[in-house]
Simulated assay, not measured.
Amino acid sequence: MLEKILKSFVCLSLAVLAAGCAAPVKQLDYTAFKQSRPKSILILPPLNESPDVKATYSMLSQMSYPLAEAGYYVLPVALVDETLKQNGMTAADDIHAIAPAKLQEIFGADAALYVTVSKYGSVYTVINSAVVVTANAKLIDLKSGELLWSGSASASSAEANNNSGGGLIGALVAAAVNQIVNSVSDRGHDIAALTSQRLLSTRQPNGILYGPHSPKYGTD
Rank of each mutant, 00 (worst) to 15 (best):
Q104P: 03
A153R: 09
I208M: 11
S156E: 10
A109E: 02
D141L: 00
A32L: 12
A92H: 08
L42D: 00
P46C: 09
E69I: 11
Q62V: 13
L209G: 02
V25R: 15
L6D: 00
K34L: 10
A55H: 08
P24T: 14
A158R: 10
A78K: 08
S154K: 09
G20M: 03
G108Q: 01
K119D: 14
G108L: 07
S122I: 04
D81H: 14
G166H: 07
L84H: 08
V25F: 13
V74C: 08
P45I: 00
V77Q: 08
V177Y: 00
G145R: 01
L28Y: 15
G108A: 05
A171V: 03
A155R: 10
G151L: 10
A101Y: 01
K85P: 06
N162Y: 09
I180N: 09
L199F: 13
S183W: 07
V74I: 15
Q86S: 08
L139E: 00
D29A: 12
S154T: 15
S164L: 14
K39Q: 12
A18P: 00
N48T: 10
Q62T: 13
G20R: 07
S36E: 01
L12T: 08
I5D: 04
T195S: 05
L139R: 04
A155L: 04
W149G: 06
G188Y: 02
A68C: 02
P212C: 05
K119V: 04
A92S: 15
K39D: 05
T202F: 14
V10W: 04
L113P: 08
A15G: 11
I5P: 01
R203N: 14
S154P: 06
S154W: 02
V131C: 13
A112M: 08
L60A: 11
Q179C: 07
A155H: 07
S58P: 00
Q35Y: 02
T90W: 02
V123W: 02
V184I: 15
V77M: 01
R203F: 14
T116G: 03
A137D: 02
R187I: 07
K4V: 08
I127V: 13
G218P: 07
N178S: 14
L44S: 09
L84Q: 05
N163Q: 05
I140P: 01
P212K: 12
S58G: 14
S183F: 09
L139C: 09
G165A: 15
V16K: 00
G108D: 05
G165T: 10
N182Q: 12
A55T: 10
S58N: 13
P100S: 11
V181E: 11
A175Y: 10
S8C: 02
N128W: 01
V177Q: 10
L12G: 04
L194A: 03
E146M: 12
S156K: 13
A22K: 15
G151R: 01
V53K: 15
E3S: 09
H96Y: 03
K85G: 00
A109P: 05
Y73W: 12
V177K: 13
